Amino acid sequence: MSFVEKKISVKRSINLLAKNGIQVDDNEGTEILNFLYLIAKNYQYKGGIESMNLKEKSNYKKVR
């Protein structure tokens, strides 16, 4: 599976995992990164006004 707009390189992901005591090679790092991108791609946000940022909250009642 290939993601066009990867914002984190495999090397960086391996370094981040290593900082937390998880040792992986390039192949494992690629698989972990692809898995996380797949989860992020399929995530559906179901937040309400409570989860809006402050600017959105301040304009919420004025518009509606």
Results as ranks from 00 to 15, higher is better:
50 E>S: 10
13 S>P: 00
24 V>P: 02
21 G>C: 05
26 D>H: 09
20 N>F: 04
45 Y>E: 12
47 G>K: 01
60 Y>N: 11
20 N>E: 15
5 E>Y: 00
8 I>S: 04
55 K>R: 12
28 E>W: 06
32 I>Q: 04
43 Y>N: 06
60 Y>S: 13
63 V>R: 14
21 G>P: 04
48 G>E: 04
7 K>M: 12
54 L>N: 14
29 G>Y: 06
17 L>M: 09
43 Y>T: 11
43 Y>V: 11
20 N>Q: 14
56 E>D: 15
24 V>A: 04
33 L>D: 05
32 I>A: 07
5 E>W: 00
22 I>E: 04
19 K>C: 05
47 G>L: 02
17 L>F: 01
46 K>D: 14
18 A>N: 15
48 G>L: 03
5 E>M: 01
49 I>N: 00
46 K>R: 14
37 Y>R: 04
51 S>Q: 13
10 V>A: 02
1 M>I: 11
63 V>H: 11
37 Y>F: 10
32 I>C: 02
55 K>M: 11
42 N>P: 01
20 N>L: 10
31 E>L: 12
27 N>C: 08
34 N>Y: 02
6 K>D: 06
3 F>N: 06
64 R>C: 09
43 Y>H: 09
64 R>D: 11
45 Y>M: 03
3 F>D: 07
21 G>E: 08
28 E>Y: 06
57 K>E: 03
24 V>N: 01
41 K>N: 10
17 L>H: 01
23 Q>Y: 09
20 N>A: 10
41 K>Q: 11
5 E>R: 00
16 L>S: 12
32 I>R: 06
6 K>S: 04
42 N>K: 12
31 E>I: 11
51 S>W: 00
3 F>G: 08
15 N>R: 12
